[in-house]
Design a binder for these strands. Structure first.
Lengths: 156, 156
DNA sequence: TCATGTTAGTATCATTTTGATAGTTACTTA
DNA sequence: TAAGTAACTATCAAAATGATACTAACATGA
């Protein structure tokens, strides 16, 4: 899909860098603690060419950072940036959706260490405390439309 | 990417049907109220072949449902199922991430109708009330591994 | 009745992306 | 010196995507 970075829609902009399965699975594994090329490759069964490309994109986009962990031989690993770490809640929600609607055959469950209970993640508005989806809301389009706009919509 | 529906990971299972940009943008538009082929096509600038395929997958996967809205001429529209509606919080979170990390040039903002304030979505555990990411948690793998397992991992 | 318009697609084909496999670099360890 | 390890790159076939044109089944207006 073509690169659309000038839409005012932050969802579309996010998808520009994480809108594919491999990137999200790499992020999942990174959040689970993996950092190295071969760890990702073995965990995902991904072709090395693909893994190289995805890791490069995630790094360019600021979700991962390369860090030298050995000088001789020269070796680098990929560690999550703050932006990458902030993807955790999204993956937790995606997992929860899958647990509800794709769990035939058994799926893993997330347990809170402190309570020992299964986590039931919900999205709430930190301002009002209301659960997202239970109250009306609306979009506000920015006053200053991005210059060099590629006007994503209403072609034809 | 190959179809992996036997992983115990609910994230991977979800991505099997919504792990691409078009599906998520279609879902976004559906949640904004769009239902018809041409509405999606014009809003997204997507090729009709692609749109047909994506709508078919989303329908098969149970996120959308076809509904006849005219008998003569025969016309169908795509409406969200409960599973599709339950994707809203995920898209809100993805949007929030983009707003934080991809907002150069201005992006749309979500306003709560009641309070008039911008929504600040966070994921919390409904059981403990704790914000996700602030407390330790762990995964539990299901006792009954799925039969016909295609063992996604650790090849080589 | 004929031309035009609308909506939801399908057909076709070039381009791009992905996937599989083998090979490379720069080392370490036995 | 040989084998092993980690992080890749090169190559090429297969699959997915994108652009464009076209079709089906009607309605509408002249």
């Amino acid at each position: 899909m073509k690169n659309i970075s000038n839409t005012p829609c932050p969802i579309a902009r996010s998808l520009n860098c994480v809108g594919d399965t491999w990137s999200l699975l790499i992020l999942r594994d990174a959040l689970a603690g993996l950092t190295r090329f071969d760890q990702f490759r073995k965990s995902l069964g991904i072709a090395p060419t693909m893994l190289t490309r995805r890791l490069a994109t995630l790094t360019e986009e600021g979700l991962l950072e390369k860090q030298l962990y050995s000088e001789r031989p020269p070796r680098e690993e990929y560690v999550l940036t703050t932006a990458g770490q902030d993807f955790l809640p999204i993956l937790v929600m995606i997992g929860d959706w899958g647990r509800k609607y794709r769990s035939m055959g058994g799926v893993t469950r997330l347990i809170d260490d402190e309570s020992g209970q299964e986590i039931q993640p919900i999205v709430v508005d930190a301002v009002t405390g209301a659960t997202i989806g239970t109250r009306a809301m609306h979009l506000v389009i920015p006053e200053q439309p991005p210059m060099c706009s590629t006007s994503q919509s209403n072609n034809e």
